[in-house]
Each structure stands twice: as structure tokens, then as C-alpha cells.
């Protein structure tokens, strides 16, 4: 690596490309992961929307301008679910890398650690966005009526949502020390994040049913804001509140994860000698 500015940039780009290539190669080899990434939300879409289509009435609230069917309401939440699972998968992969020793290789590379972790996040975000589009294709095949131009306008929201949820995964990987602890942690994160959010029902519906505390939990849940940001973006609209909070959450989670991975100040530096 040269010390010049262009040399540092070239080094940083090569490292990013290497990390992206590795993550994509590994993802494409894991066909089960690829299939489950699409099948999981599809099951929710088919089963839930069939069951609740006539039970839940969804009134006209922004960004919707007409009455919508329940499958249309659910779609942004399920896209959020795809991103959330990808974030957890990234975290699981990091814990696995730590157990098998490959994480050391990354952490001893001659680049700032925050940058190496940012590259990991970029890889997780890219995979999340690709899976979200794969699910959008499935939703289209099942006749979910989403605006076609929404496919383009939703891209920045998918990227930001993917980044923030991958950052959450990165943060979790600091504290989840062993693979066997991971299943419990995932359930502890994924289910509350998904159910206490607007993925399945709008906030006003929760309030209407008298579940004030659940409505409050959903309002402060960062996943709600990821879902709402995506919902608005699918209709070419911008939710400043949800976008701002998603960005804030992502940056905060990333900052805390970088601190956790810093041997000077983080928990990893205090680990026992087998780490």
C-alpha cells in the first residue's frame, strides 16, 4: 500500500471489492439461504393475506390514495422482513467467521477497522437489496398491486433500510459470542421487531383496538420506520421522519459496533485469550 492519497483510495476500493466478492460468492453457494429469503415472506404474503384479506379493513391513509387490499399493505412490511433477516444473517456470518478464525484475517488487514466493518455492511446491504427485489418479483407474480415506478423509487429506501438493519446485525455480533447463542438472540430481536411494528397492521388500528402500549412500542420501534420509509418510497413519496430515524438508528448502531470491535475501547479487547 502506498502512502499517497490515490494509493490509499485504490487500496480501500480493492478491499471493498474483495469483501463484496467473498460475501456474494458465499451467498450464491448457499442455495438454502437464497430460497428461504424468498419463501419466508412469500408464505406470509400468501397465508396471511388470504386469511386476513376480509378481516382487516385498511382505510385510506398516506401514502395510499385509494382503498388497498391487505396484501398491498403487507408488502412493505415483508420487504422489511427480508432486510431484517439479511441483517441477522450477516451477524450470524460474522459470529461464524469469528469461531472459525477467518474474522482475524479481516481485522488484521492494514486498513482502519471502521472501514473494514463498513465494507462488511455494504456487502450485507447489497445482498439485502437484491433479496428484496427478488421478493418484489414474487409479489408481482402473486398479483400484489404495487406501482411499477415504485420499483425504482424504493431503491434508496431499501439501501438505507438494509444498511441500518445490517448495522444492527453488526452490533449484535459484538455481544453474541458463540454460535449456539445465536438462535435465541435472533428470536429475541426478529419477533419483537416484526410484531411490534407497522408491518402487519397500521398504528391507528392498534390504537383503535385499545392496545395503546403496543402502539407506543411500535412507534418507537426502529423497524416500524424502516417499513414506513419503504411504504412511502414505493409510492414515490418521502417520509422525512422515518428516513431520518432509520438513518439515525443505522449510524448509531454502526458507531456502537465499531466501538465494540475496537480493541482499545471495546469488549473484544477484554476477551479471554482464546478469542
Amino acid at each position: 500500500m502506498t502512502g499517497s492519497h490515490s494509493g490509499v483510495l485504490a487500496h480501500a476500493s480493492l478491499a471493498l471489492a474483495a469483501i463484496l466478492r467473498r460475501e456474494i460468492t458465499k451467498f450464491l453457494r448457499q442455495t438454502g439461504r437464497l430460497v428461504s429469503a424468498v419463501v419466508r415472506p412469500t408464505l406470509w404474503l400468501v397465508v396471511f393475506s388470504a386469511g386476513f384479506q376480509n378481516v382487516l379493513g385498511v382505510s385510506i391513509t398516506p401514502p395510499y390514495e385509494n382503498y388497498i387490499t391487505y396484501d398491498v399493505y403487507m408488502a412493505p412490511g415483508l420487504i422489511g422482513m427480508v432486510l431484517l433477516f439479511q441483517g441477522m444473517q450477516s451477524s450470524l456470518a460474522l459470529v461464524f467467521d469469528r469461531e472459525v478464525g477467518t474474522l482475524r484475517l479481516l481485522l488484521t488487514a492494514p486498513l482502519p477497522r471502521w472501514y473494514l466493518l463498513l465494507c462488511k455492511l455494504a456487502a450485507g446491504t447489497l445482498l439485502g437489496v437484491a433479496q428484496a427485489y427478488a421478493f418484489l418479483l414474487v409479489a408481482l407474480a402473486f398479483g400484489v398491486d404495487l406501482p411499477r415506478w415504485g420499483w425504482i423509487s424504493v431503491l434508496p429506501a431499501l439501501a438505507l433500510g438494509g444498511f441500518s438493519l445490517a448495522a444492527l446485525g453488526l452490533l449484535l455480533s459484538v455481544y453474541v459470542r458463540r454460535l449456539e447463542n445465536f438462535a435465541g438472540t435472533m428470536n429475541f430481536v426478529i419477533f419483537p421487531a416484526f410484531f411490534f411494528s407497522t408491518a402487519l397492521y397500521p398504528l391507528w388500528k392498534l390504537r383503535e383496538s385499545g392496545s395503546e402500549w403496543i402502539a407506543w412500542a411500535a412507534r418507537v420501534n426502529p423497524f416500524t420506520h424502516v417499513v414506513e420509509m419503504i411504504r412511502f418510497a414505493l409510492y414515490g413519496q418521502f417520509s422525512a421522519l422515518s428516513t431520518g430515524l432509520t438513518l439515525l438508528f443505522g449510524v448509531l448502531a454502526f458507531g456502537l459496533a465499531v466501538r465494540g470491535y475496537d480493541p482499545q475501547s471495546g469488549v473484544l479487547g477484554r476477551a479471554p485469550r482464546d478469542e
Binding site: 478491499a15 458465499k26 453457494r29 477467518t102 488487514a109
Partner: peptide, 23 residues
């Protein structure tokens, strides 16, 4: 050991090369 068992030898070395700015 710190090799990625699921990748080929060449992919492992290329990954390391990238991390060290060799392209």
C-alpha cells in the same frame, strides 16, 4: 486455521490480496 473452507485456494488468496491493496 483462518482459511475459508468453502472457497477455493485462489479465492482465499484473492480475498487476502484485496485486503492488502493488491489488485
Amino acid at each position: 486455521p483462518s482459511l475459508d473452507l468453502d472457497l477455493t485456494v485462489e479465492q482465499n488468496l484473492a480475498y487476502h490480496a484485496g485486503l492488502h491493496g493488491i489488485g
